[in-house]
Each structure stands twice: as C-alpha cells, then as structure tokens.
C-alpha cells in the first residue's frame, strides 16, 4: 500500500503516530507506527508504516488512481480528493432509536470537518423549510467529531429531521440537490460497496412517523 502525500501537508499537521490514548497504537490501527494526516482520506493514513520517500511528482499509486478517484458529470475523474469535507447527521432519533410518544426530546448528532473546526450546525424538523441553531459540545476541536444538541418538543406528528453543518473555513454541507447539480446524478441501485459517490457529505433526512420510528428518506 503506497500513497503520495503533498509536502505541504507533511509540513502542516501530519505526524507519525506511535501512541493513542496513552498506549501504543493497536495492531489493527497500524502498530508500531502509522502515518496520520488529520482531516484527509482514511486510506492516506498509512498503517504499519515502513517507508517515507521524498519524490517530486505523485507516483500514481493504485489507491490514488484505480481507487479513491471519483468520476463526475462529464468525462473528467477527480483525483487527490484529500479532505473529508464538512458533514453532520442526527444520531438521536435515528433508525432503530424509536421515540416513545410526544414530548420533550433532545435531537443530538455528530458533525465533522477535515478542514478544521465546526462553525455551526443547524437543525430542521420540517424537512428543511425552517432551521434553528444547535448547541455544540465543548471543547470545539479541529478535525474532530463534534456533538451537537437541540431541545425539541415533538407533537407526535410525522416529521422530517435534518441537520446541516458549516465549518470555520466557510464550507457548508451540501444538500442532495446541490451535490447532484455539481457531480451528476448517481445511477440507481448502486451497491453500497461500489463507492461511486465517495465523499458523499450531503444533508441526511430522517423521517419520523407517528409511531416514533425513524427511517432514512431522500429529502
């Protein structure tokens, strides 16, 4: 497994990880040492690191050509899509976590940006027609999972829940419509493992019915 890493990132916040949470990193996480490129695609964080070589041009490794590239509308293929971009989703309620009837709840979820800290998260309970700003858990850390919370009174009627995140660099989580306008529509019935829509950081919609059950819908 080899990947080309920009010098700019190496000199920025890249590191060679030996420890995690006070102990040596696990074998499954790349013991004895792992390259860490915060905020960048997971596969670039090379595990079981044994060699770093300075080069002038990317080597065009298999994992930056045949894989981890993204065909967009038109003939072009995006390459070197380094950062995992701003994304959020609601974890409670969510499919499997059923609400027990009308009343007060906390809508809670996670936000992340590979470009830095989360700036704000907005939550909607009417499918994106109106929004309110959620509270963010402290400490607010760069390129880290960030918990957001929104107090909510549910009247027991079917609702469409959404969250939308901005990061401090000014990037905003796109809607499905905005993403498809930029990249083209996905083919139907694409298997989950096919990765045709990698870096799919669109707003996610949960439809909660009057029994309190949440389902993933395309909002």
């Amino acid at each position: 497994m080899n990947r080309s890493i920009p010098i700019a990132k190496a000199l920025d916040d890249a590191m060679i990880a030996l420890y995690q949470n006070g102990e040596r990193i696990n074998p499954a996480q790349g013991y004895p040492m792992r390259l860490l490129v915060p905020g960048y695609e997971g596969n670039m964080n090379v595990k079981w690191l044994h060699r770093i070589k300075l080069i002038e041009e990317p080597v065009m490794a298999i994992n930056e050509t045949m894989q981890y590239t993204y065909r967009v509308a038109g003939p072009k293929i995006w390459q070197f899509f380094f950062p995992m971009e701003v994304k959020s989703f609601i974890t409670h309620p969510s499919p499997g976590l059923t609400l027990k009837g009308p009343g007060f709840y906390e809508i809670s979820g996670l936000a992340y940006s590979g470009n830095g800290r989360i700036g704000k998260v907005m939550v909607s309970a009417d499918g994106g027609r109106s929004w309110a700003q959620a509270a963010l858990d402290a400490p607010l850390l760069s390129k880290a999972l960030t918990r957001f919370r929104m107090p909510w009174r549910w009247d027991g009627q079917p609702v469409l829940l959404q969250s939308r995140a901005w990061d401090e660099a000014g990037n905003v989580q796109p809607t499905r419509a905005e993403m498809f306008a930029e990249r083209g529509e996905p083919k139907v019935n694409v298997p989950v493992t096919a990765f045709p829509m990698g870096h799919m950081n669109v707003v996610t919609t949960w439809a909660v019915d009057n029994k309190g059950e949440a389902k993933h819908v395309y909002g």
Binding site: P6, A8, Y70, P75, I77, W78, F80, F81, F82, P83
Partner: peptide, 14 residues
Amino acid sequence: PNRNGFVSRYPEKH
C-alpha cells in the same frame, strides 16, 4: 487511453 482524464480536486493543496 485516459491519461489526460484526471483532474486534481484541490490543486491548491498540493
């Protein structure tokens, strides 16, 4: 055949 078909997503990050 597709040597010229690739475009870097964020060239400013190189």
